[in-house]
Amino acid sequence: MRTEIRIAGFGGQGIIRSGLILSMAACIYGDKNAVQTQSYGPESRGGSCKSEVVIADEEIDFPLVDEPDVVVIMSQEAYHTYINTAKENASILVDSEMVTERADPPNTKIFNVPATKTAKELGKAIIANVVMLGALVSLTNLVTFEAMKEAILRNIPKGTENLNMKAFEKGYDFGKKLLKKKNVPAN
């Protein structure tokens, strides 16, 4: 099975890094194949920014995202640009603090994750992406908890392990709760 994921936000939110961590969780710490592509250049230093991942059980022929099955949105601008680009029934994770103007499309599974808010509560807004990755694991089952955890640890500065793991677990638990509340199974 092939799953396409688009992660979008603005430069400095760790968008590209999130795509890399997800891909590594899938193909280095998990047993799937993965490809990551990204927007590049000035865009990743402040402007809008996106990272795209294809995860598949089989070899991946076409490496780019066509119509995503999963979208992670971390900014208002990304919301406007990408909210209507997903497949029908796609899972869309929205950072509810960053996106206030909403016009959620029908036939999608919208999950509001307070990633930035949670990260701030933990003391560092910059780890909002890790909260989001936690929620992504419980909401989509694309990769296992363990694989994601290893991939995160591999990609963060030394000395920040505890903080990042807290953020990851918070996100993961929040996703679980959301599923229970909505009573929908994970993809």
Binding site: A34, V35, Q36, T37, Y40, P63
Partner: peptide
């Protein structure tokens, strides 16, 4: 090309 140069894979 730029796509392969910047693309990440195993």
């Amino acid at each position: 090309d730029a796509t392969i140069g910047h693309m990440w894979e195993r």
